[in-house]
């Protein structure tokens, strides 16, 4: 892609955003009536759908259950039409398995699993349209779905990606910026306590820049948590108006 700069001289990115500006986030919970909890989230052009079932008895072999905690089972899959080039297998390939493992690790830090020994909580996430920030959209959608299902959590989990171009950290990367070959950091944060649930970075970065990058990602996550908070509160108010006398 010759000639396309990730950050122009005036400080504008490929899609016209400033360096620390996030994409537009829209979300809705309780999308499906049959699941215990569900949510749909759009972060720019990336669309993710999360569904939560549980807690219920451990499916499959009983030996997978833990005696003092619930097991969190995640599956990440992408719709075959989600990427520009058609994906042949929705799930089961290495990348999806890796993402599922990351999601499991992220939510084990946030969900109060000690309350449900010997049971299993299923989180299924599907990407309907992929335009960068797949992992973050999944985490945000799954957080909303868990809140919708009434599963006790320590805090929201908000995730965002950040990149680094010419000494400026960029927040919330889109697909073109991610695949441009520069640094890309994915961060999952529990906003109120400031604890990091997952941190992953690809590509080379000078260690002096690491702090600035993590700061940028954390600020972006905190901004995202406000949006998610609004969505949850709005939904609660809507439901209470309907059920109140």
């Amino acid at each position: 892609m010759a000639g396309l700069e990730l950050l122009s001289d005036q400080g504008y990115r490929l899609d016209g955003r400033k360096a620390t500006e996030l994409r537009k986030v829209q979300a809705r919970t309780s999308v499906f009536a049959q699941a215990d909890g569900s949510a749909y989230l759009e972060q720019g052009n990336t669309k993710a759908l999360a569904v939560v079932y549980g807690p219920h008895e451990t499916r499959g072999s009983r030996s997978k259950s833990l005696h003092d905690r619930a097991v969190i089972n995640c599956q990440f899959s992408m719709a075959t039409f989600s990427t520009a080039e058609r994906k042949r297998r929705p799930h089961g390939d290495r990348k999806s398995s890796e993402m599922s493992l990351h999601l499991k690790q992220t939510f084990e830090a946030a969900v109060l699993t000690e309350l449900y020994p010997r049971s299993q909580i299923d989180i299924y996430v599907k990407i309907l349209q992929a335009d960068g920030g797949n992992y973050s959209a999944c985490v945000n959608a799954a957080t909303l779905a868990l809140v919708d299902a009434g599963i006790p959590m320590r805090d929201y989990v908000c995730a965002c990606t950040a990149g680094f171009v010419e000494d400026t950290p960029l927040a919330d990367l889109c697909h073109a910026e991610e695949s441009g070959g520069g640094t890309s950091l994915a961060l999952a944060l529990l906003p109120r306590s400031g604890n990091i649930a997952l941190l992953q970075m690809d590509a080379r970065l000078h260690q002096d820049h690491l702090d600035a990058l993590i700061e940028a990602a954390m600020t972006a996550c905190k901004g995202l948590s406000k949006v998610l908070d609004d969505v949850v509160r709005q939904h609660l108010e809507e439901v209470s108006v309907l059920t109140r006398d």
Partner: peptide, 16 residues
């Protein structure tokens, strides 16, 4: 045609 019965519908559709 390709039909993907996703796990969203019911946990029995997880994996294969």
């Amino acid at each position: 045609f390709f039909v993907d019965c996703s796990a969203n519908a019911t946990p029995e559709f997880e994996g294969r």
